[in-house]
Design a protein around this nucleic acid. Sequence first.
DNA 1: ATGTCGATACTTTATCGA
Length: 262
Amino acid sequence: MPLRIATWNVNSIKSRLEAACAWIKSAAPDVLCLQEIKCETGAFPAQAFEDLGYNVAVHGQKSYNGVALLSKWPMDDIITALPGNEADAQARYIEGVVMANGAAVRVASIYLPNGNPADTEKYSYKLAWMARLKAHAQNLFQHEEALVLAGDYNVIPQPEDVHNPASWVDDALFKLETRSAFREIINLGFTEAFRAVDCSVKRYTFWDYQAGAWQKNNGLRIDHLLLSPEAAMRLIACEIDKSPRGAEKPSDHTPIWADLRT
DNA sequence: ATGTCGATACTTTATCGA
């Protein structure tokens, strides 16, 4: 059995608890990285996931942001902040080592800042956060271990990852500066799992709630799994599961998972 | 052109963030 690592921005775990439990039962991920849980750590519905056989690690925050790791396997070395800025109070990062049948895989659940509007301090915060992520990833690379940085990157890597690239050139998710910062992280030696196995276009992980974006397939591919070489050599599949986005009361994101050989 | 959600509070509608 491969090790399945998934990521899903649920846009409030309170609103999505039923959908999350249903998806977990159907996709049976070993690890699920959640973003935008939008609740404080103590308010996270851990019991519901423990009942499904998962260990739970949460870094929550009132109202906004918030990330979590669910793992069928024991987790160790949990860290709940991206190093590099002690003053940053936004809950956007949690990392842990999953002990899967004796083989350790380090997994992070990432909620990278949106950054819009791009002419404000929100965008400089995004770029600073990406620089911190790069620095931290560079440190993690020294371990030469299987490492998966998964989450909502709020980055459209390439024109083929958005329905209408021309209208997104000034957006914080697609600006050249954003894509360049993402590329800098990739260039440390990561493999972006989806593009490693699938070159098809019009493949998205997010569709805005507005303007019939889902019905028209006007989406964005902004949820990614970045694999260290030790993880990438084990990659056997990566798929976007669109079904939760088409269900009742959906998140605006849908899950994406990668299977690693064990 | 607009369109939608979810959380919050001096709440029952407006504001913010996405």
